[in-house]
Simulated scan of single mutants.
Amino acid sequence: MKPQVTLKRISEMLNISISTVSRALKDHPDISETTRRKVQELAQMLEYEPNAYAISLRTNNSKEFGVILPDISNHFYLSFIASLEEEARRYGYSLIILQSGNDQAIERDNVKRCRFARVAGVFISVTAETEDIKEMLKMDEQNIPVIFCDKVPAFEACNKVCVADEQATHLAAAELLKKNKKNILAIFGDAHLSITQIRMLAFTAYMSEHNASAKYTIIHAANPQEAATAVQKAMKARRRPDAIFSMSDDILTGVMRSIQRSGLRFPDDIGLIAISDGYLPGLYYPEITYVETSGYKLGKLAFNRMMSCLSGSLFARTLIADAVLVPGGSL
C-alpha cells in the first residue's frame, strides 16, 4: 500500500519546518520564491493531497454535506440524491450518503457521525419511529444547519422541505370523484409518520367535503408486502373496490404485485391512482395515473434552503414543492 504523503514527510525530505511547507503550498509571501517552488514541485511529484477532514477540524469549514435517509433503494430518494449532488458539485461540495434503514438507533449513530465529522450541513428524512430530535437540533449549536426533508418531524421550529402533501392528496381525491368511483380502497403508509397523517387527513377531509355518496376504506401498510396482502383481501370481499388510492411508491409496488397476480385490467376491472415520483407509473401498461411529487424538485429546494442557512438565515422555514396531476390509463 502506498504510504500517505504528509506535510511532515515533505518537511523531512527538504529539511525545513512543517509550517514552512504549509505556507509554501499556500503561496504565502513570507516564504521565498525558491523555497515555494521546491516545496510545490516535491508535493506534485509525490502526489500530495491535503487532508480534507483535518482541514475541516482545524478551520471548522467543511465542504461535505451529510445526507441521512431511511432507504436509498426507491426512485424518489435516488432522484433526490442526484439533485442534491448536482447542486453540491456546482458549489464545490460533496455528499456523505448514510442510510438508517428506518431504524432509529442507526439514525442516531448517523447523526453523531455527521456531528463528529463537522460536516457543513445535514439533510435528513426521519424514520417512522423518530420523535425526539434533540440530537439533530444540537448541531445548530455547532453551526451545522439541519434541513428535514420529505419525512419530517411534527416539531415546528426547524427547517423543513416537503412535497405538497395536502395538494397532492386533494388532486388524487378529486380525480377519483371525477371518474365517479363509488367504493375506494385508500392505502396509506405507517400511521406514525407525519407524512401519512397529513395525507390521510387531507383525503378524508376532501372526500367528506366534496362527495358524501362515495364510500372509502382506509388501511395502513408499512411496506409493499402489507399493501399487496391488503389488496388481495379487499378483492375477495363481497363488495370489491372499484378504485385504489396508493399514498406512495412503496405502497404502489405492493398494489401492482397483487393486481398483476389477480389478472385484473385497468381501468375496466379496477381503477388506480397513486402519489408518485413518476418513475414506477411509467413502467406499466397502461401507464398509471399519478400525482407527481418529485424527489428531484425537492432536492433543489432543500439545497437552496441549506445555502440560505449557511449564508446566515437563522429563522426556521417550511418550504413546499408543488404537486402535479399526470393522467395515465389506469383510472
Rank of each mutant, 00 (worst) to 15 (best):
R113C: 11
S32P: 04
T35K: 10
D132G: 12
R58C: 04
K151G: 03
T229E: 05
I218V: 09
A316D: 03
D165S: 02
A321L: 03
L264R: 04
S125A: 13
C114Q: 00
N223F: 15
C114N: 00
G282M: 11
D27L: 10
E47W: 12
T229H: 07
A221D: 09
T130A: 10
K138H: 07
T6G: 05
E47M: 15
S213K: 14
Y53Q: 07
I198Y: 01
A82K: 07
A157D: 13
K300S: 06
L57I: 14
E135Y: 11
L280M: 10
T20P: 02
P50S: 14
V126C: 01
Y93P: 00
L171Y: 02
A228E: 06
Q40V: 11
A321H: 00
T253L: 10
S208F: 04
L98Y: 12
G329T: 09
H75A: 02
V122H: 05
T20Q: 05
G263E: 01
A117W: 03
L95R: 05
G271V: 09
P50F: 12
S313M: 05
S79K: 14
N74Y: 08
G121F: 02
A117M: 06
K26L: 06
E87K: 07
L331N: 01
K182F: 10
H192F: 08
S246P: 01
R305V: 06
E41V: 15
P3Y: 09
T293I: 11
I273C: 05
N304W: 15
R239Y: 10
M136D: 07
G299D: 01
T127G: 05
I251Y: 00
L185Y: 02
K181H: 02
R9I: 04
R199F: 09
C162H: 06
L46H: 02
S17K: 15
N51F: 05
G271E: 03
M13K: 09
D132C: 15
G278F: 14
R239G: 04
R108K: 11
E85H: 05
I195K: 10
A221H: 14
Y93I: 01
Q104D: 14
Q4G: 08
Y296L: 12
Y284F: 02
I275Y: 01
R118T: 06
I219F: 06
C149D: 02
F155H: 06
T35M: 12
G282N: 09
N223L: 12
S194Q: 15
Q197K: 08
S208H: 08
V122T: 08
V67A: 11
T229I: 12
M13I: 11
E175S: 09
M136Q: 08
T204G: 01
L171W: 00
F116H: 13
G101T: 08
I81S: 11
C309K: 02
K181G: 03
R36V: 05
S56E: 02
G92Q: 03
Y77R: 01
G121N: 03
T20A: 08
M207V: 04
S79G: 12
K112S: 09
F148D: 02
K182H: 09
A274E: 01
F203M: 00
G329H: 08
A105T: 06
Y279N: 04
H28A: 13
R265K: 10
H28G: 11
A173Y: 07
D103K: 10
E209M: 15
I147G: 05
A105N: 04
R90N: 15
E131I: 14
D30C: 13
L46R: 07
I195C: 13
R261D: 09
N102P: 12
S313Y: 02
S94G: 04
M13P: 03
